[in-house]
Design a protein around this nucleic acid. Structure first.
Lengths: 232, 232
DNA sequence: AGACTTACTACACGGCGTGTACTTTTACCT
DNA sequence: AGGTAAAAGTACACGCCGTGTAGTAAGTCT
């Protein structure tokens, strides 16, 4: 690592740090190249040596944030014994909400609309994190399938999904995942997401005092409906 | 109605119409006073005779959109006989998704973050529509309560909610709504919202071919879990 | 030591919301 | 009918924004 590379890495880190602060403070729309440059004592144009455009900066931020979320969810899941699928699902869900409350603007950036006219690239860290989240949840639901599958509709086939999604799930070692389990997993995802999204955007706080309890109740109900016993 | 008032109303309508077009085209962030003025052949500053600020314009737009959503949901519900609570809930849910797909940017504007640093006023049409939606759904769930309430936790009291929420629900003629039903209603709201939010923000389309069927399955499951028979 | 690449500056352009000051049009009152 | 106050609209300016072009200074490699 040459001196130049070290400096470059350091500056890049400083730029993203300031941008993250702007994001956390005033939301995605407040991320400003000129603001960052001002805070760093640089010419606005100097940032362009590190990010070719503002959207590229935002893409990098989103990637980091999404990766952080995926890490958090996987860590929460893995803190619960493999055998306790219900507990792992609950941990996943509660970690989702906790992360969202800790990073509300990051939640908006990743799950909502980042910035007008912005289109994320097809295969960056954002996509990869998205796949980790979707795939991780699907595998959890697949673990619950022996019980959860009993009351699920059987008319689902892998042709209902894009081939890439299928491939991604199956090439993990061994276990076959039934297509109906994948469909169920997406519905579970939606259910875990809904209340959190409403809360983050201020639609729940005005109407109930303890959103945490509400969410927990719903997640316990969800786990029960999958035929799993919630952990103690 | 004087000539002046007519002209004013007409101009106001034209401004909001163009703003709505901007919104539908490129999202909330693309709404621009200067752009509107340009399209109308006016000086940018002339808009200020109609809306004191850009945020005020957006507030008006959001109000109209939210009211439209509330109207749509209530109309869908009322197209199903009062006795068929399961059918009414399904209609409500499907109308939510259909409206969201027809007005994706409106969905973002109402349920997401409109614009950086923007704070909606406490008691405008937006709040009123929000209450209609939340309240309408709560009353539907209350209708299902005799059956749905059996497996619901009983440790919910009205002290868990803001007094205003309680008052709003009870002063409708007669029927007492149990607090646990209100809690359940919020969870139902979250469940109806989650998959739609994921889909609108592009997280579902990449991973399954027929989101409509997925959503319908989940809603039928939801209605079944409330002890209701889905309509034929 | 010279050549090339990288980081950075200076300046400019067109976009944005909006403040101040002024002119024109309309509505109302005597 | 004429005068006046309010409303609608214009002109100009300021400070934000992303970013294009041109040129300079420092670091790296042969």
């Amino acid at each position: 690592m040459t001196r130049r590379e070290r400096l470059r890495a350091e500056t890049t880190r400083e730029i993203t740090a300031i941008a993250l602060a702007q994001l956390a403070e005033d939301g995605p729309g407040a991320i400003s190249l000129r603001g960052i440059a001002r805070e760093m004592g640089m010419t606005p144009r100097a940032i362009y040596s590190y990010f070719a455009t503002r959207d590229e900066l935002i893409t990098a931020l989103t990637g980091g944030i999404a990766t952080d979320l995926a890490d958090t969810l996987e860590a929460a899941r893995d803190a619960v014994p493999t055998a306790d699928t219900g507990g792992r699902l609950l941990a996943w869900a509660l970690a989702t909400r906790a992360w969202a409350l800790a990073n509300p603007q990051g939640f908006r950036l990743f799950f909502g609309d980042p910035v007008p006219g912005y289109q994320p690239p097809e295969d960056g860290p954002v996509e990869r994190a998205s796949r980790r989240i979707c795939g991780g949840l699907t595998r959890l639901v697949a673990d619950a399938w022996p019980l959860a599958g009993r009351h699920q509709p059987a008319d689902v086939s892998w042709s209902d999904f894009p081939p890439a999604f299928f491939a991604r799930l199956q090439d993990e070692d061994g276990a076959e995942i039934p297509p109906a389990a994948a469909a169920l997993a997406l519905r579970v995802w939606g259910r875990m997401h809904g209340l959190v999204a409403l809360e983050i955007h201020g639609h729940i706080g005005a109407v109930v005092h303890d959103p945490a309890a509400l969410y927990r109740t719903d997640m316990l109900d969800l786990i029960g409906s999958l035929g799993l016993t919630p952990p103690d």
